[in-house]
Design a protein around this nucleic acid. Structure first.
Length: 883
RNA sequence: GGGAGCAUAGCUCAGUUGGUUUAGAGCAUCUGCCUUACAAGCAGAGGGUCGGGGGUUCGACUCCCUCUGCUCCCACCA
């Protein structure tokens, strides 16, 4: 059978994914085995796969596949997040493109459009994950707005409300006057913006009339002076002591406002006088709270001045700014203006300048919940990987603020609060329950009198329940309730793989909800991936256009190649600088494995062939090496060092298995292989494929299926990880020396321009295992191997050393003796330097007295080895010089 | 402004409670090879004194201080 010289992933990937699905290998049901559970960080339902997802989900799949192969009942729960802001924005802009304004629709009409959109675009990302090979239990796919999941959110709200932890309060939100919505802090982009700092005169009031004295304030927003409710100075500022207790008049409108004292003011910025505008600046709002100042909001939702401004009513804020500056100038209130650069917030979606706006929002108290959630991380009940994030986590948890859980949107779980005609509020799980509650307040009220709160809940308010509600949506909100079988079995989950930037938004809150409703942590380990950046270190983003399309990458390089490429360069918590050459490396590796398979499959057994000594030795060596490697790999996995584990297997396969093992046991062209060697080789190959499977699921399945006869329905993904046996270090050391001998001869060939086809002899003085002679002969094309005791016995040739073993290759007439001498002298120099440093240590009494015994022993061994080598080299140089 | 982290070969990174040869890997580079598994390959080689300075120690890439540069988080001074 002819096998192609290149591996073509496209032909195999779809086939095996279908096979795995058909056999139900991804599906998990509770049973007597130990569970291994991961819940996916749910991507936005209408999102598409980006490089961050690729990395994140590759890591999860590696962990899940490995767990499945170590006897665990592995369950990876997939799903999507309704992502209220992002999804609603997409639906709004889609409708706009069709000429439909959101404002013209009722809530239910809009939601119908949104669901339609979700049905059409939702889940694309999950299909893309399948291309990557993700072994999710698709039968368990969840969506945060599935009815039971949504009910869990409502139940949770009611639970916390009844506990007195949810309240309504005024808060400054980021208002997007173009998008007509509040946006979260994460959706505000701060950019340095050129503006002006205006210095304005406020006259001191004398019985409501401007006096002769005045204060000068500096502001970037003169159009908001009509909303001023105080002037603020620092209590220790002696320049203004005489003004304490006085009042000033706002220019143009002549409203009288007090001068208040607050340490918030910096004495050395601007003029040291600050105008306080509580409605339009968060800091001013807080000053206002401290001094009981009124709040005057002079802007409408489109950021136009309203009638409270008294002047310039109806003008848009920036137009108003221009006009008011000239008005102030005319009336001689403008002292001067300066160019000024400040950080201004812009809406990520509309690029409008964000307007801080006061509004009534729902909050969840966080201080109490934060305490146990901090503790479980600090005491390692939940481990953060890498550990450095513990600091960041603690910092946030110790300064936790109440959580604003309401959003002025329609797409999401509507807040289950109903208002009575008199404004009183009831909170309940359903309209019926709400009516019942309402009647306790007012027996005459009927359902039509109740008006439900317009806002929806923050998306994180549903995702924080995710590890609980995917198994038992009836549990959140009911801490005392017995968990269902699924939750009891799968919770706590094992590992969570996510990005550090949502450590607080999501991870911390899951820990709180899990603790509250299940009295246990939601997961044991949190593996934090880095951000995928481009070669220049820039974050990958649509607007920069520097993000490759993951699906195209998979088509071009194969899913296995992409997985390997991403993983090779990604240690936990470090950003990864993505470069397509890494994916190329992954593809090349897949091809290497493919070709190793081609080689082995091409071998025919010669029944009469006896097993050559070099094959016996190679098998013994590789068997020991494999055991040692498995131990190393297990250790890497135990510490979540996935890229180290992969790199170890990479080298084990490419260097040790292909370049050494296969080359040694390979029969001469046209020859046949003995049965024992072929069987061992196939067994090694099988083990290597199983080690590789979590990283390269498709290729390993393809080869594993064909390596030997398999039972129908078998699969590498439900086989097992190879076990390590105890290994013999001496075998490995002896082989290492033989490898050095071979490399030494090859080096001589290269530097002297001797063809590999020309047979050479080798003289050895030292410990080269006689059992490995045939190996050296075959691999270095050596005719005879001789032992020698005196280098003076040898004439023209080249020499090298490995450890304390000396090697000599006779080369008649080919050698430039002076060059040999030069080489030996350079090495001698190096050894002298080395010996000097060792001697210095051993000559230091304090070292000998204080260093542990084994360290001193080691140094002594180094010393004697170096001395042996030096004398050998000196002898060699002497002999060479005689010629 | 506050806090955290990082700085090791051209690039991306290891270096596991300071002590196995005066630092390792992969990629890239250079040299020689189309050798019948693989040029997406084979064989060989070169390359860093661990950001600068100081300190602790018998011993520092590893611990402490300091300077420089970069990154992130938080607050963003009217």
């Amino acid at each position: 059978m002819e096998i192609s010289a290149k591996y073509s992933p496209a032909e195999t990937e779809g086939k095996w994914y279908k096979y795995w699905m058909e056999k139900g290998f991804f599906h998990s049901e509770p049973d007597e085995r130990e569970p291994y559970t991961i819940v996916i960080p749910p991507p936005n339902v209408t999102g598409v796969l980006h490089m961050g997802h690729m990395l994140n989900n590759t890591i999860q799949d590696v962990l899940v596949r490995r767990a499945r192969m170590t006897g665990k009942n592995a369950c990876w729960v997939p799903g999507t997040d309704h992502a209220s802001i992002a999804t609603e924005a997409k639906v709004v802009s889609k409708l706009k493109a069709e000429g439909i304004e959101k404002e013209s629709l009722t809530r239910s009409e809009f939601l119908a459009h949104a669901w339609e959109w979700k049905e059409k675009h939702g889940g694309i990302i999950l299909e893309q994950l399948k291309k990557l090979g993700a072994s999710c239990d698709w039968e368990r796919t969840k969506f945060t707005m599935d009815q039971p999941m949504s009910q869990a959110v409502i139940n949770t709200f009611v639970y916390y409300y009844n506990k007195g932890l949810i309240y309504r309060g005024i808060r400054m939100v980021n208002w997007d006057p173009v998008g007509q919505t509040a946006v979260s802090d994460e959706e505000v982009i701060h950019r340095e913006t050129k503006s002006k700092l205006y210095y304005l005169k406020y006259y001191i009031s004398e019985n409501g009339k401007p006096g002769s004295d005045f204060v000068t304030i500096a502001t970037t927003r003169p159009e908001t002076i009509m909303a001023d409710t105080a002037i603020c100075i620092h209590p220790q500022d002696t320049r203004f002591t005489h003004l304490q207790g006085k009042k000033v008049l706002i220019p143009l409108v002549n409203r009288e406002i007090p001068i208040v004292l607050d340490e918030y003011v910096s004495m050395d910025f601007g003029t040291g006088c600050l105008k306080v505008t509580p409605a339009h600046d968060i800091n001013d709002y807080e000053i206002g709270l401290r001094h009981n100042l009124p709040v005057i909001d002079i802007l409408d939702n489109f950021a136009r001045l309203n009638d409270k401004a008294q002047i310039l009513i109806g003008e848009e804020r920036f137009a108003a700014r221009k006009k008011i500056v000239s008005m102030l100038n005319e009336q001689r209130h403008l002292v001067k203006e300066e160019d000024y650069i400040s950080q201004v917030g812009y809406s990520e979606r509309t690029d409008a300048v964000i307007e801080p706006k006061l509004s009534l929002q729902w909050f969840l108290k966080m201080d109490k919940a934060a305490i146990p959630a901090l503790e479980v991380v600090m005491n390692n009940k939940i481990k953060l990987i890498p550990e450095k994030y513990k600091n960041t986590y603690r910092h946030w948890m110790e300064n936790v603020k109440d959580w604003c859980i309401s959003r002025q949107l329609w797409w999401g779980q509507q807040i289950p609060a109903w208002y009575l005609p008199d404004g009183k509020v009831v909170v309940a799980r359903s309209p019926e329950d709400a009516l019942e509650e309402a009647r306790k307040i007012d027996p005459n009220v009927c359902i039509d009198d109740l008006k439900q709160d317009e806002d929806v809940l923050d998306t994180w308010f549903s995702s924080w329940l995710w590890p609980v509600s995917v198994f038992d949506p009836g549990k959140p909100g009911f801490p005392g309730k017995t968990p269902n079988e699924e939750l009891a079995y799968y919770y706590p989950t094992n590992d969570l793989v996510t990005a550090p930037e949502i450590l607080f938004f999501w991870v911390a809150r899951m820990i709180m909800a899990g603790g509250e409703f299940c009295s246990d942590v939601p997961f044991r380990n949190v593996y934090l991936t880095g951000i995928v950046r481009d070669k220049q270190g820039r974050k990958m983003s649509k607007s920069l256009g520097n993000s490759p399309d993951p699906v195209k990458l998979i088509e071009e390089y194969g899913a296995d190649g992409v997985r390997v490429g991403m993983l090779l360069c990604s240690s936990a918590g470090n950003d990864i600088l993505f470069d397509e050459t890494q994916v190329e490396q992954g593809r090349n590796f897949a091809n290497k494995i493919w070709n190793a398979y081609r080689l082995v499959k091409g071998w025919n057994i010669g029944e009469s062939e006896s097993q050559p000594e070099h094959s016996i030795k190679a098998i013994e060596w590789f068997d020991n090496l494999l055991s040692e490697s498995i131990e190393t790999i297990n250790d890497h996995f135990a510490k979540f060092r996935l890229s180290d584990a992969l790199m170890h297997i990479y080298k084990l396969f490419w260097d040790d298995f292909c370049a050494w093992y296969l080359e040694i046991v390979k029969p001469v062209y046209g020859g046949e292989i003995d049965k024992a060697t072929l069987e061992s080789t196939i067994l090694f190959f099988d083990k290597l494929l199983r080690l590789l499977h979590p990283f390269m699921p498709f290729l390993t399945e393809e080869l594993w299926q064909n390596l030997t006869e398999r039972e129908k329905g078998e699969s590498i993904m439900v086989s097992s990880q190879p076990d390590s046996k105890s290994f013999n270090g001496t075998v490995l050391e002896k082989f290492a020396l033989a490898k050095d001998a071979i490399a030494g001869v090859r080096n001589i060939r290269q530097s002297k321009g001797i063809s590999p086809k020309e047979s050479l002899d080798l003289h050895v003085k030292g410990n080269l295992d006689a059992g490995l002679y045939t190996t050296v002969r075959k691999m270095a094309n050596i005719g005879n191997i001789y032992l020698f005791s005196q280098s003076s016995d040898l004439v023209s040739g080249a020499s090298f050393m490995s450890g304390t073993t000396e090697f000599f290759v006779p080369l008649e007439g080919l050698t430039d003796i002076s060059e040999e001498i030069k080489k030996a002298e350079a090495e001698l120099d190096h050894l002298h330097g080395f010996l000097k440093s060792v001697n210095a240590k051993l000559g230091n009494e304090k070292f000998v007295a204080n260093a542990p015994g084994h360290v001193v022993e080691m140094e002594k061994k180094k010393q004697s080895d170096a001395q042996t080598k030096i004398s050998a080299l000196e002898k060699l140089i002497q002999d060479l010089k005689k010629q």
